[in-house]
């Protein structure tokens, strides 16, 4: 009995060490910029770098735009699939999984072939249009996570009956979506939104090949030219990601729908 308990604990400890030791090492290394003492000098340099602020700001704006477009695309789609077209669910799930199996570099080369400056839709001809293309490509990249989060949220409520109840009370489709469905999948939408934010903030391939000043390419640039600052940036990116996860947990404590006896 005692041996049976030690096994799982050992696995947990080995797993934790596997993840935590490199992290601690990176953090420790990021504090060694000044010789002979620990300091946050690398963090100060990174945070004071105008390029850091510009690229982080750019990626944040694009992440927010990606979330808005993603939510407006995914919530009505997942709702309609659940309500009226449940037979299409496997097809839609397959489509939403494609970004996980098709490498980002393949997708972005496809974009460049279709939307290059001499094509019918020359989205790479101007910076704003390329920003839009990059936003759409991020929506594609985040689709598996956003769709799954929203779909799980919708499955947790009785979409059909709630819709019918609202309809019988005189509600129109917009009223049903915004007053009944959205508030009841708020937690799921937030989960999808924070996952999207975490993906977009660190994304490199698409931003780099579309030549946009995002945080991912900046991380790569610093990593290739400096010693201590990349470690500080890695820790900052890690903190941002975990802050997103923390927010998911914070907002994830929704109300239970279980009836009291």
């Amino acid at each position: 009995m005692k041996g049976a308990k030690i096994g799982p604990w050992l696995a947990v400890i080995v797993g934790a060490l596997y993840f935590v030791v490199p992290l601690i090492a990176t953090f420790e290394f990021s504090l060694r910029l000044r010789r002979g003492e620990y300091s946050f000098e690398a963090y100060r340099i990174v945070l004071a770098d105008p390029q850091f602020q510009a690229t982080f700001g750019y990626s944040t704006v694009l992440a927010l735009a990606t979330i808005v477009v993603g939510v407006l695309l995914v919530v009505p789609t997942a709702y309609w699939i659940q309500l009226r077209l449940p037979r299409l669910r496997p097809i839609v799930e397959f489509i939403t999984l494609l970004p996980l199996v098709i490498p980002a570099i393949v997708i972005v080369f496809g974009y460049l072939r279709i939307y290059n400056s001499s094509s019918l839709i020359p989205m790479t001809a101007s910076e704003r249009a390329t920003d839009l293309l990059l936003t759409f490509s991020y929506v594609t990249l985040a689709l598996p996570y956003m769709y799954r989060a929203v779909d799980t949220g919708l499955r947790a409520i009785d979409v059909r009956t709630l819709t019918e109840a609202a309809e019988s009370l005189g509600a129109s489709w917009p009223a049903i979506l915004f007053r009944v469905i959205f508030p009841n999948v708020r937690v799921a939408v937030l989960s999808g939104a924070f996952l999207t934010f975490a993906i977009v903030i660190g994304e490199f391939t698409m931003a780099s090949l579309l030549d946009r000043p995002a945080f991912g390419p900046y991380l790569q640039l610093i990593g290739a030219n400096r010693a201590y600052e990349p470690s500080a940036l890695a820790i900052i990116a890690f903190v941002v990601t975990w802050a997103c996860m923390g927010l998911i947990n914070l907002f994830g404590g929704g109300k239970t729908t279980k009836a009291v006896p």
Binding site: T161, L162, L169, G170, A171, S172, A175, R179, K255
Partner: peptide, 30 residues
């Protein structure tokens, strides 16, 4: 929503995000 017919469902179908008062007032609000 154009018939003015009230419906009560087996599974209650109360809106989980609304209080009792908001649920009852929903039809009047829309």
């Amino acid at each position: 929503n154009q018939r003015n017919v009230g419906m009560v469902f087996q599974s209650y179908a109360l809106f989980p995000n609304m209080t009792v008062a908001d649920n009852v007032a929903f039809g009047l609000k829309v």
